[in-house]
Amino acid sequence: MSHATTNHKMSAELEAHHHAFNDDKTQFGFWAYLMTDLVLFATLFATYAVLHNNTWGGPTAGELFSMPYVLVETMALLTSSFTVGMAMLAIFRFKQTQALIWFVITFLLGAVFLGMELYEFNHLVHEGLAWHASAFMSSFFTLVGTHGLHITVGLLWMGIMMFRIVKQGITHNNVRRLTLLSLFWHFLDIVWIFIFTFVYLMGAAAV
């Protein structure tokens, strides 16, 4: 077989066709992946639904969480979904500096969200309500923590992409990757809305 040694340039026609097909295929595949991630979260929601009353004598969700605090956390994440949208609009208009500013804001908002979540976790652990305190705490930490882990991955991804925009500019490959990143970020936003509703709002309502 004679591969690997050849290093031809793509013809412009092939390149255009290839890009369009590749983008389409990749976005579709990423959507499919996001749906599997949704099933993953659905399973965690189901475990939370089964276990959230099993507090083993500890406090319930309603007694535990401070709503104003969670609301600020939520607003930070929701705003970041807006700013990532602005960043993508700038990307599609090839406005590099503008895009970078919006990405930095998104990154900071994501970091604020993650920081607040970790602070809340830390607080709970110090209250003696760590993940091993009860089945309720286990399912809470796992559901919310899995979302936090996804946010961490998103931040890492965003950091790398900002670095690449600075180095390479808005190339076709970078646009494709950023499109996936923004899909991922919006997806995490939607999942958080469900967490906010099921864990925090319904927890507060149940008191």
Binding site: W56, S134, F141
Partner: peptide, 20 residues
């Protein structure tokens, strides 16, 4: 997580639910 971190998803005590 049950095994590594002492969580209680499927344990018989602390509110875990093996049938889940």
């Amino acid at each position: 997580f049950d095994r590594l971190f002492g969580m209680h998803f499927f344990t018989s005590d602390f509110g875990g639910n093996p049938m889940m």
